[in-house]
Design a protein around this nucleic acid. Structure first.
Length: 133
RNA sequence: GCUACAAGUAAGGUUAUCGCCGCGACUAUAGAGGUCGGGGAGGAAAGUCCGGACAGCAAAGAGCGACAUACCACCUAACAGAUGGUGCCUGUUGCAAGACAGGUAAGAGAGUGCCACAGAAAAUAACCGUCCGUUGCGCCUUGGCGUGACGAGAUAAGGGUGAAAAAGUGAGGUAAGAGCUCACUGGUAGGGGUGGCAACAUCCCUAUCGGGUAAACCUUAUGUGCUGAAAUGUCAAAUAAGUGAGUGCUUGAGAACGGCUCGUUCGAUACUCAUGGGUAGACAGAUACAUGCAGGUGGUGACAUCUGCGGUAGAUAAAUGAUGACCUUCCCAACUUGUUGGGAAAACAGAAUCCGGCUUAUUUACUUGUAGUUUUU
RNA sequence: GCCGUAGUGGCUCAGUGGUAGAGCACCUCCUUGGUAAGGAGGAGAUCGAGGGUUCAAUUCUCUCCUACGGCU
């Protein structure tokens, strides 16, 4: 996995309805325009897992093409900038589940999304609790 | 050559880096995995408006109800779709004949309802009017004229309306009138001849002249059982057809996902209470086909059929992306008129069980046809 | 994915083949020293859009648009 730092396979995505429900029930949130970032840390064992998801409300974007485009751009931004948080989690031994909710009602350019993603990832890194004794 | 309209076709290509989802091979392993190869959105994938396939309910049966369709023929698995034709209406063009385009289509000579306002009356028409009969009064040469009343008399020629007024015009006829009769014209129904598979066209004869509305109820004919992949099946320590108690019990309580009735099948394995037990997963359904392309044959055509070649997404919080370069194409500007520089590569839009249609959205380029116009020969 | 409901003045809703209505809100006047309440009057609608049936459509019918809801 370390040989391919920018990969983004199925295992790194939030897929289980149970986990997502738990995230929305117990998770905390902050807001970095245009994303609302919902996150949940849980203590972990040997292999800490980082899982993420992106949500674009149908209310704001009626067309599937627009929703797909936002998801793809956001995912690309996440993929290229997730390395620091992955390393920090390995060190601190904490699972993390994140959901990015796109709250704006227009499609932003990739550059703006990238900036917002970097900013929110930085913030997440700071929020990681220390589990090392 | 340009412009307009119609129909059709295509939906940039190659490559680098970083990535995503299936498939195959190899490799590794307790397992996760790794390498290589190859594949990865549309003409509408959309709306969910029709029709099927498929699945479950009884491999769903009868009647009623409900719903849908409605010129004719033909195509199809099927259709409200397509193809070819018919009648009518509208528009464009034309002197006209006609041509083209669009729309429309069973039945109002079965029944019920409705037709505001206006109008005498809106559908078994007598309100006014006209005429006739009886009668009162007045006038005058016993009969007429004028006027009034009555009629369970006649009459649809005329009457300011209205979307629509009881075939139209002319003549005869009559007390007044009337398709009452006649001529011409028009409509409807029936019969016959000719042409056509038929709708229908055309000619002849007979009868007839009866408002509209069925996207009001309805009638006729035909068709449709209901529910939809969130259906449905399988797996695991499984939401119970488990366990315990009670009730009830032998010719029908109840169940079988439908509006009602019947019929059929199951039928105490029923009903009530208590107890018990938990995941929202995995796999199948699910990607091979009413399949695509090319050619031949039949048909006016939709289409059918034969031969050859081909395999072409399969996700599930849901893949098909991001950044850059070049080629090609298009646009703009400059002038050396074929170069340079700059810009853009689009619009509508993203599969979710699968097909056939319909509808809606839409850019650029090309091809074909029709019409117009200009230049040259 | 599948199924359904609604759209009428600024807002909440009636209405139904025949000139579109109510309440609140708005404007003017009366009342009051002034305001509220009350009274009188008034304005405000392409009935979501576009075709069709009909003499006539908000209503019937078809196609779109928008909003909302249900089904694991």
């Amino acid at each position: 996995m370390l040989s391919k730092p920018f990969s983004l396979s199925k295992h790194e995505r939030l897929k289980s309805k149970k986990q997502i429900d738990a995230l929305f029930l117990n998770g905390k949130a902050f807001f970095v325009y245009p994303f609302k970032v919902k996150y949940l840390f849980t203590a972990s064992g040997e292999n800490p897992q980082l899982k993420f998801g992106i949500s674009v409300p149908k209310r704001n974007f009626k067309k599937a093409v627009d929703r797909n485009r936002i998801k793809r751009l956001s995912r690309e931004a996440y993929r290229l900038h997730k390395v620091p948080i992955q390393e920090k989690i390995q060190v601190e031994r904490s699972d993390l589940q994140v959901m990015f909710i796109y709250t704006h009602n227009e499609i932003l350019a990739y550059d703006e999304m990238k900036k917002a993603m970097i900013k929110s990832l930085h913030k997440l890194v700071e929020l990681i609790p220390s589990n090392t004794p």
